[in-house]
Write a protein that binds this DNA or RNA. Sequence first.
DNA 1: CGTAACATAAACAACT
DNA 2: AAGTTGTTTATGTTAC
Length: 576
Amino acid sequence: MTPQVITPQQMQQILQQQVLSPQQLQVLLQQQQALMLQQQQLQEFYKKQQEQLQLQLLQQQHAGKQPKEQQQVATQQLAFQQQLLQMQQLQQQHLLSLQRQGLLTIQPGQPALPLQPLAQGMIPTELQQLWKEVTSAHTAEETTGNNHSSLDLTTTCVSSSAPSKTSLIMNPHASTNGQLSVHTPKRESLSHEEHPHSHPLYGHGVCKWPGCEAVCEDFQSFLKHLNSEHALDDRSTAQCRVQMQVVQQLELQLAKDKERLQAMMTHLHVKSTEPKAAPQPLNLVSSVTLSKSASEASPQSLPHTPTTPTAPITPVTQGPSVITTTSMHTVGPIRRRYSDKYNVPISSADIAQNQEFYKNAEVRPPFTYASLIRQAILESPEKQLTLNEIYNWFTRMFAYFRRNAATWKNAVRHNLSLHKCFVRVENVKGAVWTVDEVEFQKRRPQKISGNPSLIKNMQSSHAYCTPLNAALQASMAENSIPLYTTASMGNPTLGNLASAIREELNGAMEHTNSNESDSSPGRSPMQAVHPVHVKEEPLDPEEAEGPLSLVTTANHSPDFDHDRDYEDEPVNEDME
DNA sequence: CGTAACATAAACAACT
DNA sequence: AAGTTGTTTATGTTAC
C-alpha cells in the first residue's frame, strides 16, 4: 500500500503556481459547479429511475410476480445502472482532467490529510506573498473581469446544507447532493468574458466577498469598496484561505457523494458493471520527503501508479468513526522540522481525523514526539502508560513508527526524560509515565502570531454564528491556526467545518491563554499522581501558573472508546 | 545573529 | 550477558 500523498513541496508548488492563480481558480470553480450540476442531474435521474422501478415492482406484485416481468425489471435496472455509470465515468474523467491541470487536489476516497497541509501549510508570510501575487494578477485582470464566482461557491455551499429530498430517499444522511445546482456556471462565465463590469465578487449590487455583503450602488463604488475594505491584510488573507478551504470542502463533498452513489448502486445489486474499484490516485507522491529517514525507509513508495489500491484513509466513507477515535486532547505543538512550513499547527482534531491515515500510511506524523507521547498517555484509561505501552501506541497508531524503531524509541525515551511535562510514577509493577498537563501547556510555543485580541472576540461569537462565518472569523482570528478541511463525518460540510473551527478556536484560545497566563498564578490541581522522581527544574518564580481552562476544554469528544484494543498487543515493531 | 524548540545520535547507568 | 529503561550530553535544523 503506497500512500498517495502530496509532498509538501508539491503542495506548495500547486499553491503557488496553480491553485491561487485567479484564472485557474476560476476554472476550478466553474468546473466545480459544473460537476455539482452533473451530480445533481445524476441524482435526479437516479431518483426518477428509482421511482419507476418501485412503481413497476408494485405493479408486478399486483400482477402476481411473473418471472418474466421480473426479468424485465432486472434488465431495466441494469440499463439504468449502466447509464449511471456512464455519467459517473464522465465525472471521473472530469475530475481527472482537473487533476491534470493541477486544479484538483483530491480524489474520491482520497485521504483528507494531504489536503490539509495544502490549506494549512501556509504561514502568514507565505500567504501574504501568495496573496500579493494573486492580487496583482487580479488587478491586472480586473478590467477584463476574469476571475469570479468565489462567493457563488459560498452561497452554493451554504444552501447545500439544506436537506435534499432527493437524497433523503436513499439515505437519510444525505444532505447536500441535490441542492448544489443553484447556478448555471456557463452563463456566468460567459457573462464575465463579455462584461468587463461584472466581477465575481460583485453581484446584485452587493459585495460578494465572503462575509461582507456590503451594498455597492455601482461597479465603481464596488471597486472602491473592494480596494478599501478588502485590501491585502491579515483579514483578507485569512478569508482567502478560508475560501480555498471552502472549495476544498466542496471537493470533498463531491467525492463523498460520489462514493455514496456508488454505495447506493452497490446496494441495488449492481455488481456487474463494477465501476471504479479504487479511486484513482492522482499523481501524488507519497510524502516520503517528510524526513530523510522516511525516504530511506520507504523507497518503494513511488507515484505514478494509478493502480494502487485506494488510499489508506478514506475518511469520506468512514463517517464519524474516524473522528471519534481519539478524545480531543489537544495535541500540542507540531513538528517543525523538514516540513513544518507546510503544516503549521494541527489540532487534536487533526490527529484524530487523520488517524486512519497515519495508521496505514507511512507518513511521518507532523506532531512532535512530546505531543504524541502525551496523546498516547491521555488516551489511556488511566492516563498513564509504561514505556512499552507508549511504544505500542506509537506503532499501533502510526505506520511510520513501525520502522526505525531504535531511532524513534530512543527519541521517545529522550523526550520522556527531557520534558518536565512527563512524570514518571512508580507503580506496583514498574513505572508508568503520566502527563503534567500544566507543564505541557506551559511548554507550548506561541503559535499564535496573529492578533490574539481578535481571537478573544471570536470566542464569544463563534459558537453560534453560521459555520461559514465562523470559518471566516476563525481564520481571521487565527492566522496561523488552520481550519482543516473536514473530510470525514457522515454529514459533513459546514457543520463539520464549524465544529472543526470551534476545535481550532479552542486550540487558539488555549494558545493565547497559556501565553497570557504565563505570569498568572493558579496551578491546576489535577495532578493526582505522586511523582517519585521529580525532574530537576530551574524552579522559575513564575512556575506556578496554570491555565485551568486548558485542562477542562480538552474534552471535546467524550464518546470515544478510549482503549479500544489499545492494550498492547505486541506490535511488530521493526519490520525492516 | 541569538535563542528556543525540536530531532537525532549516542554514551552511560541502573535494572530486569 | 543481554536487553530494557531512563538520563544526559552533543549536535544539527528550523523558526522566530
